[in-house]
């Protein structure tokens, strides 16, 4: 089984549009959305939910106001500013470490399992999709990403499907790391802007750090030719395979508005480009494609 995760560092370079376009190409696959705190893939794939489960992870402190003597030990000991001056727990700041529970001299604090979101198994026109929604402002996004990946692997196994295609989160922190570790290929969506080139280099450093095979797609390629060249030079010196380039066109937005992938919306134009990308991707996975 191969797991491909689409990343970019910078947000808005086209991860989700690329994932949706690739979803309909090639062999049967399981789709996963690991951008759990701002998931968008479902807006194109229109999943019908077959199964959903709450995601319980970590703990949340609760202070019993009837027992609390306002001694202040918990508030002063908490390193996350999660306890207010009137001894309320601020859920958005509580990391569930249990320090307050431990130091409270009269056991006024209890720790409760915490619901952080939900995950779903759904049917889409391109295959089964595993996705999730982190509750607003909740903790543990990395663990929810790990859950989505585990469930996708189980699903692929039960369907006898050899490929998982994952839409990843932006950044290089906890959720990006959780999406990446142990994957077979990181597919980086680059764009020729100074910010995206900067961020591409950081996410490429991350994939190297975790020793994940990495390939690049250049999106919005004609926006700035000198920066496209910089991306190509960077990929060459870093030994990253460039699978192809996509033009800067409004078609991506128009397809999104219709709830279609760009391959469905524009089969003769972007559809053909993506077919070429997919072919290069398959060759890459077989160890044949190079630049």
């Amino acid at each position: 089984m191969k797991e491909i995760v689409v990343l970019s560092g910078k947000g808005g370079t086209g991860k989700t549009s690329v994932t949706a376009a690739l979803a309909g190409l090639g062999p049967a696959k399981v789709l996963a959305d690991c951008d759990v705190d701002a998931a968008d893939l479902h807006l194109v794939l229109a999943p019908s939910v077959l199964h959903q489960e709450p995601f319980i992870s970590g703990e949340l402190a609760e202070i019993d106001p009837d027992l609390c003597t306002s001694c202040g030990l918990c508030r002063d000991g908490c390193r996350f500013e999660a306890i207010t001056d009137d001894f309320q727990v601020v859920a958005e700041h509580c990391e569930g470490c249990g320090l307050c529970d431990f130091i409270c001299p009269i056991q006024a604090v209890t720790m409760h399992p915490r619901r952080c979101g939900e995950w779903y198994k759904s049917q889409t026109r391109f295959g089964t999709m595993i996705h999730a929604a982190l509750d607003i402002g909740a903790e543990n996004s990395g663990k929810l990403v790990t859950t989505v990946r585990q469930k996708s692997q189980e699903q692929a196994e039960s369907e006898g499907v050899d490929l998982i295609l994952t839409d990843g989160p932006p950044g290089i922190g906890c959720p990006a790391i959780a999406s990446l570790t142990g994957a077979d290929l990181a597919l980086l969506v680059a764009e020729p802007t100074v910010t995206a080139v900067h961020d591409l280099k950081r996410v490429a450093e991350l994939t190297r750090h975790f020793k994940i095979d990495t390939a690049v797609i250049i999106n919005k390629a004609d926006l700035q030719p000198s920066l496209e060249q910089e991306i190509r030079d960077f990929c060459e010196t870093s030994g990253l395979d460039v699978l192809g380039r996509l033009p800067y066109v409004e078609t991506f937005t128009l397809a999104q508005i219709k709830g279609q992938s760009v391959v469905e919306y524009d089969p003769g134009g972007l559809g053909k480009l993506f077919q070429g990308l997919w072919n290069n991707l398959e060759k890459h996975l077989q160890g044949e494609h190079k630049q």
Binding site: G11, A138, E139, S141
Partner: peptide, 14 residues
């Protein structure tokens, strides 16, 4: 602030 709706954004907005 960073993108998303989880811990890094909350740290940014605080």
């Amino acid at each position: 602030c960073p993108p998303g709706t989880s811990c890094p954004v909350i740290a940014g907005l605080h």
